Simulated scan of single mutants.
Amino acid sequence: MSQQSAQKSAMGKWAFKNWYPVYSPAVFNEVLVGEAPAEEAGKLVNRTIGVTLFDITKDLSHLTIKLTFQIDRVEGDKAFTRFKEMELARDYIRSLVRRGSSKVMVIQDVTTSDGAVLRFEVLAVTTYRCSTSRKRGIRAAISSRLSEVTANADFATLVRDAAMGKLSISLMEAGKKIYPLRKAEVMKLKVIRYPTKPGEAKKAEITVAQTQ
């Protein structure tokens, strides 16, 4: 097959696809985040889409927060998603770790009040280089606070608080009681298991910037 014929064949395949608007999960206010092509609606289910929190809030400080959503249902011509993963941009993470400081990592699975299991990866960066024993203390303090704040929280609340930085502030406060910290961030959040208990979908209290 010639290159020209191959191009025509590829164009023909796209001609038969429909484009479906894709919306963020209820916890992120169900805003339009993109479009996805498919020959039929059912083929969209389980497909993922990557955006930044900025795409939802229009807040420039959220450009470094990457979100992955997974399409879990299609209603009419609209595709709706569920939260799958959050991760900070690598360039931003690299900017946090400076010479003369120490890095402390905490990886911990938590179970929400509605039966979901979430895996947190927390990065803490000290103001000055510290000893191994201090690192252990920081790790223990952050782990304890994470267990405390997630004990009675549901899936939507934890995802919202992690994305909007509320959880990072709480973990920072716990860690700096052991040793001065320059920063503490939820570096990554991944869904291991979705909620298993019935509950009403909750929309996040996320402020979306108004455009003129």
Score class of each variant (00 low, 15 high):
Ala163Lys: 03
Ile192Lys: 14
Tyr20Val: 04
Gln4Asn: 09
Val110Asp: 01
Gln3Arg: 13
Thr150Met: 01
Thr196Asn: 01
Val27Ile: 05
Lys135Val: 05
Gly199Lys: 05
Lys13Gln: 11
Met11Trp: 08
Phe80Ser: 08
Ser133Gly: 09
Asp91Arg: 12
Ser147Leu: 09
Leu32Thr: 10
Glu173Asp: 12
Ser168His: 11
Leu63Val: 12
Ile138Gln: 03
Leu158Glu: 04
Glu35Ile: 09
Ser113Pro: 01
Thr64Gln: 14
Arg136Asn: 13
Gln4Gly: 02
Tyr179Glu: 10
Ala124Phe: 04
Glu205Ser: 12
Met11Cys: 07
Val45Ser: 02
Arg139Asn: 14
Cys130Tyr: 05
Tyr179Lys: 05
Val117Glu: 03
Lys8Asn: 12
Glu173Ile: 07
Leu32Gly: 10
Lys176Ser: 08
Ile178Asp: 07
Val22Gly: 01
Val106Cys: 03
Gly12Thr: 08
Leu60Cys: 06
Tyr23Phe: 15
Thr48Lys: 09
Ile192His: 12
Arg98Ser: 11
Gly100Ala: 09
Ile56Cys: 04
Phe28Gly: 03
Val104Ile: 15
Ser101Arg: 13
Thr111Gly: 02
Asn29Glu: 07
Ala36Gly: 04
Val122Lys: 01
Phe69Gln: 01
Val45Gly: 00
Leu171Ile: 05
Asp77His: 07
Glu39Ser: 11
Ser95Met: 06
Asn152Pro: 02
Glu200Ala: 11
Asp91Gly: 10
Glu30Phe: 03
Val97Ile: 11
Arg119Glu: 00
Asp114Leu: 00
Gly165Arg: 09
Glu121Gly: 03
Ala124Arg: 04
Ala26His: 00
Lys188Met: 08
Ala151Trp: 01
Lys84Thr: 06
Lys58Leu: 15
Lys190Gly: 08
Met164Ser: 06
Glu200Tyr: 10
Glu85His: 10
Ala26Thr: 00
Ile49Trp: 02
Ser143Phe: 09
Glu40Gly: 10
Lys8Val: 12
Pro25Met: 00
Thr64Phe: 07
Arg160Val: 01
Tyr20Pro: 03
Glu39Ala: 11
Leu67Gln: 03
Ala141Arg: 02
Ala15Trp: 06
Gly12Ser: 07
Thr112Ile: 07
Ala156Phe: 05
Ser147Glu: 06
